[in-house]
């Protein structure tokens, strides 16, 4: 192939894209859709359930204060601290529950794998920024709240190319 045709071909393959819809996702106006409600773990089979590894969710009525999640995280990021909670639960005599510091957490989900009582799951929430370091520390009460995550975009593939429709 001679040089001129090569350069024209190269330019042409780029120019073709002017007529194609853009592929880029317009975050934050559009947000990606995830599978499921977040990463979960089933201790009876020892296998996880696929989902996004975002902010955790703690079920107060399941947590026994056994600290296994905190022990699992010790070797990873030391993000979990066990703190006193004011409520009394029958299954949680010591009244301690995990508090997670998202300034340290790496979202590996090993704490979820460690919890034997179906008390700790992960959710689709990934927008965790804060103006202070303290704002990244989530108390058991904050972790109890189920986040609202809008999800509207998915990759769509047509003959004319792919878009985030």
């Amino acid at each position: 192939m001679n040089t001129a045709t090569g350069i024209i071909k190269a330019l042409n393959s780029g120019i073709k894209h002017l007529a194609i819809k853009r592929f880029t996702l317009r975050y934050p106006e559009e947000k990606l859709k995830f599978v499921g409600d977040g990463y979960q773990f089933d201790p009876s089979t020892g296998v996880g359930i696929a989902g996004y590894k975002g902010r955790h969710m703690l079920f107060h009525d399941h947590c026994t204060g056994c600290q296994l999640c905190s022990i699992a995280c010790e070797g990873v990021a030391e993000a979990i601290a066990m703190v006193k909670v004011p409520e009394e639960y029958k299954q949680n005599k010591k009244a301690i529950m995990p508090q997670i510091d998202y300034g340290k957490c790496v979202f590996c989900g090993l704490c979820v794998d460690a919890c034997p009582f179906y008390a700790l799951y992960m959710t689709n929430d990934y927008e965790l920024s804060s103006f202070s370091k303290e704002g990244l520390i989530y108390t058991p009460a904050q972790l109890q709240v189920k986040p609202f995550v809008s999800q509207d975009s998915e990759i769509k593939i047509t003959d004319r190319g792919a878009t985030h429709g």
Binding site: G38, Y39, I49, A50, Y52, K53
Partner: peptide, 25 residues
């Protein structure tokens, strides 16, 4: 990969004994 492992990068998906979770439906 995000659908499969739950993270866009740093998946922490492989473990001794297999993988952390099955494929999504």
């Amino acid at each position: 990969l995000e659908k499969m492992t739950g993270a866009r990068v740093t998946h922490a998906h492989f473990v001794p004994g297999g993988v952390r979770n099955d494929l999504p439906p």
